[in-house]
Design a protein around this nucleic acid. Structure first.
Lengths: 196, 196
DNA sequence: AATATAAATGAATATTCATTCACTTATGAA
DNA sequence: TTCATAAGTGAATGAATATTCATTTATATT
């Protein structure tokens, strides 16, 4: 029996993400994807049941990889500032290594696929981050607050920076490039906001 | 000569936003929009040159309205905390009055229309916000920092909260509803981060 | 009341879409 | 080497897409 060409499979995955990032879901089609990969459309239907399955499958794979790398080296019993630093480091490193992934997730978050993708993704985090929050509140390192408030202060600024960087443009006119210095300058402000 | 039915025009606008918010640009079509409005597709081409023109025109109108209401009562010579409070108030009030607009802009930001829409939108702000930033840095109320860092700390948390509220779901499981208390609790943390 | 004219339409067009199918090709096991 | 079988294909399908057009309708002006 003939064997599946795994290079072809991963090319499909790569091109799908690239295309969705570039043109959004509105500009994405199975025929165009096949053409971009230099294969027949019908082949896509060997790999995936249908278009939804293709998108959801790729989203899950990428989401799992991202979730894993985000909790790498993360010990929820460590101090607040140290724990936050590891998480910012992980997210920043992931973004540098997978420049398209972040933009791909932004597309997913604003699409009808959101719910089917986000549940799976959050499951990986929820427990470990919840444990971390409990600890630092109990230690008196930060005040108790709704999880959404914490998230909005602790991570939203990072994602905002990543986005400015990806767009290469700014609120003003000049192009913006993220640097280590800018990242940790922002981090310090976030710690100042949250730490007692 | 027959007169244009302005009710029909504004119905088109309302339904277009509603549809894009609900199903994204990938689920939006001229034929479906016409059907949803109970008019002929051809009528849409009387109001707008083509699909792009429809989307961009509506985006610009909504964007201008939002920009206006955001700088309402805003005096760039006022103190840092006072200026920030007015801006948060304005954004929050706008979000309550126009629940679909914010979601519509999120869609635009993640679409190929982004650049054509954002330039127009930002023009309204840039000057007045830049003036405000200059003042508060000169007064020594906050430290000098890249505009993107400021933006990411000062406003990203608010938009994140608005988003949690719109989705009605959370990082965890329970539904989230924004309240005045939560808004100003988050605001205080932001001020703590930025103020010297 | 008559008329000129823009608004509004229903039905068409050509194109692109997701998906299927009859067929060919490569390869692990015999 | 043969053969069973899954991988891979080119061309087709019908549905949905954006846009156009010949025609009808309403109304502001005369």
């Amino acid at each position: 029996m003939r064997t599946r060409d795994e290079d072809k499979v991963s090319l499909v995955k790569k091109m799908a993400i690239k295309s969705i990032v570039k043109d959004g879901f509105e500009g994405f089609s199975m025929n165009k994807l096949a053409k971009a990969c230099g294969i027949s459309v019908a082949t896509l239907y060997i790999y995936y049941k249908d278009k939804d399955d293709l998108i959801i499958s790729i989203a899950k794979e990428e989401g799992d990889a991202m979730a894993d790398s985000m909790i790498k080296n993360f010990d929820p019993t460590v101090s607040f500032e140290e724990g936050m630093r590891v998480q910012w480091e992980n997210r920043y490193a992931y973004m540098l290594e997978h420049p398209f992934s972040i933009a791909f997730f932004e597309q997913l978050r604003n699409s009808t696929y959101q719910s089917r993708f986000l549940d799976n993704f959050m499951k990986k985090f929820k427990q470990i981050i919840g444990e971390f929050m409990n600890n630092v509140v109990k230690n008196g390192e930060i005040n108790s607050m709704p999880l959404e408030v914490f998230w909005s202060i602790a991570y939203a600024p990072l994602y905002s920076l990543v986005r400015f960087d990806a767009e290469g443009q700014s609120v003003g006119g000049k192009p913006f490039k993220m640097t280590d210095e800018i990242l940790w300058q922002t981090f310090d402000l976030v710690i100042k906001a949250l730490k007692n």
